[in-house]
């Protein structure tokens, strides 16, 4: 019997599989298909202070082994999420929830996070400083070590919940950003968000996505994510949630070998809504094949 439980700091998860923010909404659609209680956790849709309508259409383009999206952080705003989604989440999922929080100023990040203090089910704050779609916002914080550290400090000052900073891969040296977050008091890191990409329609000779660029996700980005998790694991002593193109139980193990303590599954959910369920079901056999009794032992074992 393989032990699938893992720890993210003080938070224990029954297994390392976490649907990634932006691919799982607030859980409603998936709860129609399977019992969400099989999940280690789930990371809800990036939530900002004000409701956001998102970007113009089209927002989606297919790529080889993946997709581009420029949704633009469409969400109902933190107050509506607390009023309408949080009570529903409590009905459909009984484990620890990761609250993904966006923001356009230090004050907004802090206020959004502070509003979640009294919600016990929110076990981890995942602070999105990396969404590549919002010109005015997140991109700047996640691309600059000082700005990333400032957000970390602003959030840490208002919450006792563990703070995981979600990092963008669209930087020269992700380890530098990771170190800045760690030095500022982050409790963990989540990486990677999507890689900035673009497709052009040959017929119209215009970008396929109205926003011009979008974030690349799916199996295409998996090796990039593995490399970056490796680099960050070498650079800091914080728990890492590995994310980017994970599509199978084997990918989960590979990401953990690179240094991840838990793993988020993103675009795979959109292709196959039961992807996380299938991965969780496949994990014990894959671990047995690898001769692993505790999956947590895989974390960083490739170093």
């Amino acid at each position: 019997m393989v032990n699938l439980s893992v720890r993210l700091g003080d938070v224990e998860l029954k297994n390392p599989v976490i649907p990634a923010s932006g691919t799982f909404g607030y859980g409603r659609e998936y709860a129609e298909l399977y019992d969400l209680d099989i999940l280690g956790s789930f990371s809800w849709k990036g939530t900002t202070a004000a409701p956001r309508p998102g970007n113009p259409q089209p927002r989606i383009a297919e790529t080889a082994a993946g997709m581009l999206n420029a949704v633009g952080l469409q969400n109902p705003g933190i107050d509506a999420v607390i009023a309408e989604e949080v009570p529903n989440i409590a009905r459909i999922f009984h484990g620890p929830v990761i609250a993904n929080v966006g923001g356009f100023s230090l004050q907004e990040y802090a206020e959004n996070c502070a509003k979640l203090n009294d919600i016990d089910q929110v076990a981890i704050l995942e602070v999105n400083i990396s969404c590549p779609n919002v010109h005015a916002g997140g991109k700047n914080f996640g691309c600059d070590p000082h700005a990333a550290a400032e957000v970390t400090r602003a959030v840490k000052a208002v919450t006792k919940k563990p703070v995981f900073m979600k990092l963008t891969p669209n930087v020269t040296d992700i380890a530098e950003i990771a170190r800045a977050c760690a030095d500022a008091g982050a409790d963990g890191l989540c990486l990677i968000n999507t890689l900035l990409g673009m497709r052009i329609d040959l017929k119209t000779k215009r970008p396929l996505i109205a926003n011009r660029t979008g974030g690349l996700s799916g199996p295409a980005v998996f090796p990039v994510a593995v490399r970056m998790v490796w680099d960050v694991y070498e650079a800091v002593k914080l728990p890492i949630i590995g994310c980017g193109g994970v599509s199978s139980a084997e990918d989960v193990c590979e990401m953990m070998l690179a240094g991840a303590s838990a793993v988020e599954i993103g675009a795979a959910n959109l292709r196959d809504p039961c992807a996380c369920k299938k991965i969780i079901e496949a994990l014990p056999a894959v671990c047995e094949r690898l001769g692993v009794e505790r999956i947590a032992d895989l974390t960083g074992a490739a170093h």
């Binding site: 799982f24 998102g54 989606i60 997709m67 809504p273």
Partner: peptide
């Protein structure tokens, strides 16, 4: 619409 998931999760087609 160009859809991501087709079942309401990704907000790709709003």
């Amino acid at each position: 619409a160009r859809m991501g998931c087709g079942f309401g999760a990704c907000m790709g087609c709003s």
